[in-house]
């Protein structure tokens, strides 16, 4: 008999929920299972997904990043403004990524050096970035650069008849791949898991706790900034007032993806599935047409609850096992 490692149970549960949601949608609506819907799903949830990959790292390290939504909006308006004054799009994106990563490093530094609670510091980051976005330009700016209008639509792959994988979806999928690689196959990734499991043990083992924490927040902000760039591809505009509450979607996706909010346990591919579950629920509600959008929030909340209770039960089971082993 195959004995499943308990740490894979949340991942398995996530996969089952994803399957269940998809099957439900396919049974209810005849066109739901087509490749075109799948591609749309990837396109619609691309920027949330990229940001959620970064959020996974922070949550794995035992912290939390609330500045995601503001960062996405800030990067959007920054790029839109820079393009409006005639910058090269790649230079603008590079600047946006650098600014974002630097902001994350500052937050990480405040958290590490002054032992401030992560959610307060990133909360300040949320306020700061949201306000700075309005300082750049207080209203929505449309992007009509030729790169956005002509080059981007060509950067897509025909995956199936009538289904074109857009560039945004490719960004999303490659972020997941890069994130998985960094988390599971690098020294930094193992340090993140170690710090998230038990910071004191990690320090006693001689791991560079401070460097890991600061890098984690910088990396998370890098992914959030990348999410902001993907969002400009998707929206073709930048708006400082947009994406309020995106951080909640990102956190929900990470938790539904099987990552423990206490840190130390979880997988980046789980986050991919979590994002897809959220996206599918939205698609079902759109397909239905009579259900109102607030049902999305309620269903997401209910799913969150189920997963949190599940995690609790599993970790309790784990405790019991170690207790038995100790005896």
């Amino acid at each position: 008999m195959i004995r499943l490692n308990p740490k894979y149970i949340p991942l398995l549960a996530t996969a089952l929920v994803l399957l269940a949601v998809f099957v439900t949608g396919s049974l209810l609506y005849p066109n739901f299972g087509t490749p075109r819907v799948a591609v749309n799903l990837l396109n619609d949830s691309a920027f949330v997904g990229v940001a959620a990959v970064g959020e996974s790292f922070v949550i794995l390290s035992g912290g939390i990043d609330l500045s995601v939504g503001s960062m996405v909006a800030f990067v959007g308006i920054l790029i839109a403004k820079l393009l409006q004054v005639g910058w090269d799009p790649f230079l603008a994106m590079g600047v946006a990524l650098c600014v974002g990563t630097a902001a994350g490093a500052v937050m990480g530094g405040l958290i590490h050096f002054f032992e401030l609670p992560p959610f307060l510091v990133t909360l300040a980051g949320l306020f700061c970035l949201r306000g700075l976005g309005f300082v750049i330009y207080p209203e929505s700016i449309g992007i009509d650069h030729p790169f956005y209008g002509q080059v981007l639509p060509q950067l897509s792959i025909l995956v199936a008849p009538k289904a074109v994988l857009p560039f945004t979806a490719m960004c999303f999928l490659s972020s997941v791949v890069v994130g998985t690689f960094v988390a599971s196959f690098t020294r930094f990734g193992r340090n993140v898991y170690a710090v998230g499991s038990n910071e004191n043990s990690a320090r006693l083992m001689g791991l560079p706790v401070g460097r890991t924490k600061i890098t984690t927040y910088a990396l998370a902000s890098f992914f959030s900034a990348l999410g902001g760039i993907v969002a400009t591809f998707y929206m073709q505009s930048g708006n400082p007032a947009s994406f309020v509450g995106l951080e909640l979607d990102a956190i929900a996706a990470v938790v539904i993806g099987g990552t423990l909010l206490t840190g130390g346990v979880g997988f980046i591919p789980g986050t991919l599935m979590g994002v897809l579950i959220l996206g599918l629920i939205q698609q079902i509600i759109i397909f239905n047409g009579t259900l109102n959008s607030w049902w999305t929030r309620i269903v997401i909340g209910a799913l969150l609850l189920v997963f949190i209770v599940l995690q609790k039960l599993i970790s309790r089971g784990g405790d019991r096992e170690t207790l038995v082993a100790a005896k």
Binding site: L110, L120, V121, L123, A124, G125, L126, F127, C128, R130, G131, L132, F134, V135, P138, P240, A241
Partner: peptide, 12 residues
């Protein structure tokens, strides 16, 4: 719209 910035600085 801009008022969050000073608020954030004060919090920190």
């Amino acid at each position: 719209d801009i008022s969050p910035v000073p608020k954030a600085l004060v919090i920190i």
